[in-house]
Design a protein around this nucleic acid. Structure first.
Lengths: 228, 228
DNA sequence: CGGAGCATTGAATTGCATCAAGGCACGTGG
DNA sequence: CCACGTGCCTTGATGCAATTCAATGCTCCG
C-alpha cells in the first residue's frame, strides 16, 4: 500500500475483495488467461482495446517505448492490480509478463454494464484506480526530484514490506529484476545503477552479496536517502 | 483530452456531465467554495482529508514539496477536474489556485454514500480518475525520456487545443505561467527553460513576442520534438 | 547415476572521455 | 520590484568499450 514500485505490498487477491455473490457476477464475464513464462506480451501499445485485466498471479510490467526506442517502465503490477488503460479505444502502454502470470480478462462492454449495475463492485475498481494514480504521482516526484542514488534508495525501500522478496531476519532483498529493468524504471542508465550501488556499498548503506541479492546494512540511511 | 499539461482541452463543466436529477443529488451534498485570487491553498499535503473537490472555474496547481524544499508540480487542473487524493486519511499533495477559482466541495462520507447509491454518477468519477491516471503516465514518460527541449515542446503543444490560451489564427500561445512554474512542472531549472526557449527560437521553431507570448513558427518541428 | 570440470552466453561491472543541465552571479526590462 | 535573460564554470550522469562474473548446460569420468 505504501510501496511505489509495487514490490512492497502483497495486495489482496480478487477473491478477498468481494462478496461471493459479487464474485460470481464478475466471474460471469471473466475469462481466465495464463501466460506460462516471462516476456509474454498481454497487450501492446496502440493495439485496439477490448478488455480490462485483473492480475491474479505473477508480476507484470507496464511500459511504453519512446520514438527513440528507449523503454520506460511505468510501473510493476502484482496480484490484485488492474490494468488495461486505453484512450480512443487503443491501449496506452504495453504490458509484459515478468514471471508466469494468470489474469482475469474482463471484456469492456459487459464490464461496463456490470459496473453500472453494481455500484459496490465499481467502488472496488474506483479505489484501485485511485491507488494507481497515487503511485503514479509518487513516481513523478521521484523522477522529478531525486538523483540516481535517491531513486535507487526509493526503489529498494519498496521491497522492505514484501514477504516474497525481502527477508526481514537477514535484511536481505532478492531482486526479481535485472539492472537494465531497474534502469528503465528509474529512467537512468544501467551503468548509473551499478555505480550508485557501488557508492551505497562504499558508504556502508548496503552490501551486494551477489548481483541480485542485497543486504541492507543501514536501513536508516537508506530510508533517509529515499525520502529526499 | 489529449493534453498532458491540462491546458489543451477545455473539459466539460459539471453541469454538462450529468442528468438534471443526478446533478440535484450531487448538489445535495455539495458546498460551493470560492477563492478570489491566485496562490490560495485549497488544502495542503498531510492535512487530514475530509472532502474531494471538483473544479468548476479557474486553474489549480497540484504540487508536492520534497524534503530539500524543491517544489514539483504534478499537474494543472481545469474546470471539470477532480482532486483531493488522499492516503491514510491525509491529502497526498498541495493544491494552490493559479487564478480565481470556484470549486464544489464534496465531503467524503456523503459522497461515498452517493457513489454507492448511484452507479452512473460513480462512473463519471471513475472515468475522471482514469483520465488523470493516463495523464500521469504520460508525464512519467516525459520526465523519464525527454530532454529539456522536448519537455518544453510537450508543454507547449499542450496549449494548441486550448481556446483560452491559444490563438489558432496567429498561432500564438499566451502562457498563464511564469518560467519558474514551467520549470517546476517539467522538473528542470528556470534557466534551462529560458535557454531552451532561446534554442527553439534560434532554430526557427518559435518566436518570443514577449516573455509570455509565444508564436509557433514551425508547428511540425514542435510536434516532432514533443513526440520524442 | 551423480557429480566435477569446462564451455557458452548473457549480465554485471569498470574506466575514461564527454556533455547536458545545473548553480551562481549579474544585468535587463516592464 | 519581480520576473526574465545571459555568461561562465561546475558536475552528475551518460555513452562506449573493455573486462569480469555468474548461471546454465554439457561432457566426461568415477
Amino acid at each position: 500500500m505504501d510501496s511505489i514500485t509495487g514490490f512492497g505490498h502483497n495486495r489482496s487477491r480478487l477473491d478477498r475483495l468481494l462478496t461471493p455473490e459479487q464474485r460470481a457476477r464478475l466471474q460471469g464475464i471473466t475469462t481466465v488467461v495464463c501466460y506460462p513464462a516471462r516476456d509474454c506480451v498481454i497487450y501492446a501499445e496502440k493495439q485496439p482495446a477490448d478488455a480490462i485485466y485483473l492480475l491474479n498471479r505473477g508480476i507484470v510490467e507496464l511500459s511504453s517505448v519512446s520514438r527513440q526506442g528507449e523503454k520506460q517502465i511505468i510501473s510493476f503490477l502484482h496480484a490484485g492490480d488492474l490494468f488495461g488503460l486505453f484512450e480512443r479505444n487503443c491501449y496506452c502502454s504495453t504490458t509484459t509478463t515478468l514471471t508466469p502470470v494468470e489474469v482475469y480478462r474482463l471484456p469492456l462492454e459487459p464490464l461496463k454494464e456490470l459496473l453500472v449495475a453494481d455500484a459496490r463492485i465499481q467502488l472496488e475498481f474506483l479505489t484501485k484506480v485511485a491507488d494507481d494514480l497515487r503511485r503514479s504521482h509518487r513516481q513523478i516526484l521521484v523522477l522529478g526530484q531525486h538523483n540516481v542514488q535517491q531513486r535507487l534508495a526509493v526503489f529498494l525501500t519498496g521491497f522492505i514490506q514484501s514477504d516474497q522478496f525481502y527477508d526481514p531476519q537477514a535484511q536481505v532483498i532478492t531482486l526479481p529484476l535485472r539492472r537494465s529493468d531497474i534502469a528503465n524504471y528509474l529512467a537512468v542508465t544501467q551503468e548509473s545503477i551499478v555505480r550508485s550501488l557501488k557508492q551505497l556499498e562504499a558508504a556502508g548503506v548496503l552490501e551486494r552479496q551477489s548481483p541480485k541479492v542485497i543486504r541492507i546494512a543501514d536501513m536508516g540511511a537508506l530510508l533517509r536517502l529515499a525520502s529526499g
